[in-house]
Amino acid sequence: MTVQMTAGDVVLLTTDASVQFLRPICVRIIRELPERITYDGWVWIEGYELNAAGDARARRELYVRREGVRLVRSHPPATPMRPTTGRPERRTPSRVG
Rank of each mutant, 00 (worst) to 15 (best):
L13S: 04
R60F: 12
V96F: 11
T14V: 08
V43H: 07
L33N: 06
A78V: 06
E67A: 11
E49L: 10
G97N: 01
V10E: 04
F21L: 13
R31E: 01
P76G: 10
V69H: 00
Y39F: 10
W42C: 03
C26V: 11
I37A: 00
V10D: 05
V43I: 07
A56P: 06
E32F: 00
I37C: 12
T38M: 03
G8N: 09
Q4I: 03
R65V: 05
V19K: 09
P88S: 08
V96N: 14
V69S: 00
L22E: 05
V69M: 00
P34W: 03
M81G: 12
E35C: 06
G8V: 09
E89C: 04
I25M: 15
P80S: 15
W44Q: 11
S94G: 03
R57E: 14
I37P: 01
Q4G: 09
T15K: 00
E35T: 05
R82N: 13
T15S: 01
A17H: 13
G8T: 10
R95N: 01
C26R: 06
R91P: 05
G68D: 04
Y39G: 00
I30K: 03
L71A: 12
T6S: 09
T15M: 04
V11L: 02
R90V: 02
V3S: 05
A17G: 06
T15D: 12
E35R: 10
L22G: 15
V43N: 08
V3C: 14
Y39P: 15
L22T: 03
L50V: 06
V96I: 11
A17V: 04
I37N: 10
R31C: 05
R66H: 14
E61G: 03
T92Y: 02
R91N: 14
R65L: 06
P80D: 11
C26H: 12
G68A: 09
G97T: 15
A53S: 06
W42S: 09
G8Y: 09
W44M: 15
A17M: 12
A56Q: 05
I30S: 08
P88H: 10
C26D: 01
T38P: 05
V10M: 03
G41H: 07
P93I: 06
V27G: 12
V10H: 13
C26E: 03
T79S: 10
L62D: 00
A58M: 09
Y48L: 10
V3N: 10
P77E: 15
T84L: 09
L22F: 01
H75N: 01
L12D: 08
E32A: 06
R73A: 05
L71D: 06
G54P: 07
I37M: 09
R66V: 09
V96M: 12
P80E: 04
A56M: 09
W44I: 02
T2I: 14
A52N: 12
F21K: 03
V10P: 07
E49T: 02
